[in-house]
Design a protein around this nucleic acid. Structure first.
Length: 231
DNA sequence: AAAAAGATCAACCGCTACTTT
DNA sequence: GAAAGTAGCGGTTGATCTTTT
């Protein structure tokens, strides 16, 4: 599918934003609200692409942003959530009011990775470094689910003790194919079309505890992951 | 004081998911 | 159902700042 460029490269400014550009963007959004980023630059009189405007607003100009160092409490929340859901920076940011996904991503790469390494923990797997033993695929799968449970429990404990707006709840279900793979004349096996899935339903502390969005299953993936939230 | 190395973070790029036609 | 348009996400880059030699 073809995509048109998000902006006319030749007629847009790039690089650092000037004070005047910031002021224009703030004034425009204060007057008209967020929305339709593509047409915003023209309407606001900015020589920027919509993407750039959105990023600038979301990460630096929004009035509800919290600047300054991360607290120990925030560190632990980030670590626990990362153990649970991986590099879902926007989801993690959603649990830290005033923090942005970009800020958390940068903080993770510059501080927390090192912090975990210093603790002897692999930042990607959240397992002790220098394990040494080799697991089979089945053992790996079981171990992974146990790790997720542990991370969920840790995150829930952390969350309930430090964040005042809800509980963390993790639900994991596994759905295996109820029908066998089809075999084509050339011998190639193809999955059944009834979209068998392994469904991960994460509910990260949103009041109401709505069930996951499994009904929105990806049509392309045999294995799918979901995390659906409500406030 | 100057240069080099390392750390930080704002911004861009490419992609995917979602929505509309 | 397919194509096109848009918003948002995550990875990466590069400019700038800070620390070390």
């Amino acid at each position: 599918m073809g995509r048109s460029p998000c902006c006319e490269q030749a007629h847009t400014n790039r690089g650092a934003w000037t004070k005047e550009e910031d002021e224009r963007l703030i004034a425009y959004i204060n007057a008209h609200g967020e929305g339709c980023w593509r047409s915003l630059p023209k309407a606001a009189g900015l020589l920027r692409c919509g993407k750039s405007c959105r990023l600038r607003w979301m990460n630096y100009l929004r009035p509800d942003l919290k600047r300054g160092n991360f607290t120990e409490e925030e560190d632990e929340i980030i670590i626990n959530l990362h153990a649970l859901i991986g590099n879902k920076w926007s989801v993690i940011a959603g649990r830290l009011p005033g923090r942005t996904d970009n800020e958390i991503k940068n903080y993770w790469n510059t501080h927390i990775k090192r912090k975990l390494n210093a603790r002897g923990i692999d930042p990607q797997t959240h397992r002790p470094i220098a394990g040494g033993c080799v697991r089979t695929a089945e053992e790996e799968a079981v171990a992974s689910s146990n790790d997720i449970d542990a991370a969920a429990a840790a995150a829930e404990e952390e969350h309930s003790s430090s964040v005042d707006d809800g509980d963390l709840d993790l639900t994991i279900s596994l759905r295996l194919p109820s029908r066998p793979f089809k075999t084509s004349p050339d011998g190639a096996a193809t999955p059944p079309t009834a979209s068998p899935t392994i469904c991960f339903c994460y509910h990260l502390g949103f009041r109401g505890g709505e069930a996951c969005s499994c009904h929105r299953a990806s049509s392309s993936g045999y294995v799918s992951g979901y995390y659906g939230f409500t406030r």
